[in-house]
């Protein structure tokens, strides 16, 4: 668990740590949508600005590149799939596949968008307690007549909280299997099954123990929510964020 700090809440004092969760959720949603229309430069600028804001100060968010290797692999696969499947002006040929200029551009654009969405999620989760995310989601769902706001909020909060636990279990089982030379098995499907079954089993066992522990501490959906306060600073950050997004879209 100690190595998996990029995908879970990190106590800190950056500006994003201190902004009201409702503002953050709104900005994340807006930035994700805006990302669909931004070009390379704007996407790069957005990512850079986000990283600077989140990691600013002595106690800012730390995202370790080594922990992002699986995301990088996913992005590479997306890039390759787009590059290989988009027709256009041929640039070069690879193992009989024609790679086009348009394919490379499209692959890079889609990968960058995905990277931005990932970064937005990581920054939100890293700078916001899951209880706050839960409260924020509940606040947005409250006016909707048929949405079980408390239940949805609780589910989201737990989901966010236990992403690192899933990573941890995968890491433990994977280490134990490597210690018994699982790399000697060439078939990736067989390896995935050998990893997946014990991981799922451990996750279910752990979930069961956690549910008992939560029940023992009187868990219910009607808990004291965190105090949500939006002051001048929060509104200022929100206005700046909206302004920045508008500027990016205009560019």
């Amino acid at each position: 668990m100690a190595q998996l700090t990029s995908f879970s809440y990190q106590a800190g004092a950056s500006i994003l740590h201190r902004v009201d969760v409702r503002m953050k959720l709104a900005l994340v949603a807006a930035a994700s949508l805006a990302g669909l229309r931004l070009d390379f430069t704007a996407l790069g600028l957005m990512g850079a600005a986000l990283l600077i804001l989140a990691s600013g100060g002595r106690r800012g968010l730390r995202i370790r590149p080594g922990e992002c290797r699986w995301i990088a692999l996913l992005l590479a696969l997306v890039f390759a799939a787009r590059a290989l499947s988009t027709e256009g002006t041929p640039v070069f040929s690879l193992l009989g596949w024609e790679i086009s200029r348009e394919g490379l551009q499209e692959g890079a654009r889609v990968s960058l968008r995905l990277a931005l969405a990932f970064l937005l999620g990581a920054v939100l989760v890293g700078t916001t307690r899951s209880t706050e995310i839960r409260a924020g989601v509940q606040w947005y769902l409250k006016p909707l007549p048929f949405a079980a706001a408390a239940r949805v909020g609780t589910m989201l909060g737990l989901l966010v909280r236990f992403i690192p636990v899933v990573f941890e279990e995968v890491s433990r089982v994977s280490d134990a299997q490597r210690a018994r030379a699982v790399e000697n098995r060439r078939n990736p499907v067989r390896r995935a099954v050998k990893l997946g079954v014990p991981v799922m089993s451990r996750i279910f066992e752990r979930s069961n123990r956690l549910a008992l522990a939560m029940e023992a501490r009187c868990y219910s959906e009607s808990r004291t929510p965190p105090e949500l306060r939006a002051g001048a600073r929060d509104w200022a950050v929100f206005a700046l964020g909206c302004g920045w997004l508008a500027a990016m879209l205009a560019v």
């Binding site: 106590a11 501490r217 009187c218 808990r223």
Partner: peptide, 17 residues
């Protein structure tokens, strides 16, 4: 359950409302 030590200790009292 909590993301920080403080949050975890607060979990029970929060459940009590």
């Amino acid at each position: 359950v909590g993301e920080t030590v403080r949050d975890d200790v607060a979990f029970g009292p929060e459940n009590l409302g």
